[in-house]
């Protein structure tokens, strides 16, 4: 067992983990952060995407011990209280989800995409989420959602929105 200290969605945790524990299993099983889900075992599907120190990562391909001393943001930490993140809101308004299983990872990947490229073209959006598989939507409404969010975030001057930690 190795002790780790991690800040997740704005709260601090101190835990003993086996080194082989994947970050996603730590989040789900030890912290109860079940909003982040597992979809594959080869890092292809992206359902488990979270932000580690502000960058999107696939939490099934990071060890929990590697997050020691880091800040993790999951889908459960991107809204500002009752106010949805613009990307969450856009997924709802553009019908960018059906079963919703890929959605947490897709939203986290999209937030990361917009952080790096606030005004992406359709092609750049598709490239930006190519590591996240969705079996329901055919992606078209996801692309529209990211476009809407980009528009709202830039018009609100908020495209530099802090994506690490809860925004209390």
């Amino acid at each position: 067992m190795t002790q780790i200290n991690v800040r997740v969605d704005g709260a601090s945790y101190s835990d003993d983990v086996e080194p082989r524990t994947l970050l996603v299993h730590y989040l789900r099983e030890q912290l109860g952060k079940v909003g982040t889900v597992v979809g594959c075992d080869t890092s292809n599907c992206g359902a488990c995407t979270v932000h580690l120190d502000g960058e999107s990562v696939k939490s099934c391909t990071v060890l929990a011990v590697q997050a020691d001393g880091s800040e993790v943001t999951t889908i459960e930490g991107v809204a500002d209280g009752a106010t949805l993140h613009p990307v969450q809101k856009a997924f709802h308004e553009q019908h960018g989800l059906q079963c919703g299983y890929c959605t947490p990872g897709m939203i986290m990947a999209s937030i990361d995409l917009l952080k790096n490229n606030p005004d992406p073209s359709e092609h750049e959006i598709r490239e930006g989420i190519e590591g996240n598989l969705c079996r329901c939507t055919g992606y078209q409404n996801i692309v529209k959602a990211v476009q809407q969010a980009a528009g709202e975030m830039s018009s609100a001057g908020a495209h530099s929105v802090e994506t690490t930690g809860a925004q209390a």
Partner: peptide, 9 residues
């Protein structure tokens, strides 16, 4: 190479 999340690691 792969995708943005993989390229971060």
């Amino acid at each position: 190479v792969a995708d943005p999340a993989v390229r971060h690691r």
